[in-house]
Amino acid sequence: MKIFLASLRMEKRSTGIYRVDFLLKVMYSIIAMYGVRSLWAALYAQDPSIVGRPLSSMITYAMLAVALDIIFYPSAMSTAPQNYISQQVRSGRIDTDLLRPVDLQRQLLARNGSAALFGALWLVMPAWALGVLLMGLELPPTLLHGTAFLVSGVLSFLILFSLNFMLGMVCFATTEIRQITMAYSGILTILSGKLIPNWLYPEWMQAVIEILPFRCVFETPLNIYTGAASRVDIAYSLLLQAAWAAVLFLLGKIMWLGVHKHLAVQGG
């Protein structure tokens, strides 16, 4: 928790220094939201009956997905675990991380988490407010949905963190992971519901997506926010998310312990 607060302060300071960054970031969130809004409006103009969901709900889903995406790929890209690890491994500074008394996984979670929270407060809130005021972003239907969305969002972050952390572990095998990261984000885009919600896919793809953890990252919280999920659905989704978060975190931990052991024997 202490590291978390310290990281948060650091994050705040750096935004002060890179002031141009800040304005540009708010701008790009708005462009991206505007983009998906136009896309769905154009698609719906085609034949609204295909989709079975009102345009306003779809737009809310898509714009909020963009907002979540900004939190999940927070301001300082270097705080994302896979980027940080690859940077440290390549420069040979990973040793210094091993020397710190705090476990690497927790260290990174604190850092990445603070950046995400900061992104949520400083970048996404303004974008979200503008969306509500100007672009027809809807509010969640009930207070319950709103609260559940926040909880679900935190769980999403945890799941994504663990996935990214495991990707970071790949660095110890190959030095360069930028390309793999690109492919990974491509796959994530398809399977997480970030751009296209699950129910638009063909049946067989839906079945595959259902059993993978990726859809918990975007689709679950978004379905809750837009009210597509009933009370029972909410309870079930949150439990499922929590289970995935725990399993993936543990899996990451096991991988890290393996790598750590290997490092101690091989000497980096």
Binding site: K12, T15, G16, I17, R19, F22, L23
Partner: peptide, 18 residues
């Protein structure tokens, strides 16, 4: 050298007038 401001609204101030 750009000077990071101090005080409560430093971030906002730096945005307006570095």
């Amino acid at each position: 050298i750009a000077k990071p401001g101090e005080g409560r609204f430093a971030t906002l101030k730096a945005l307006v007038r570095p």
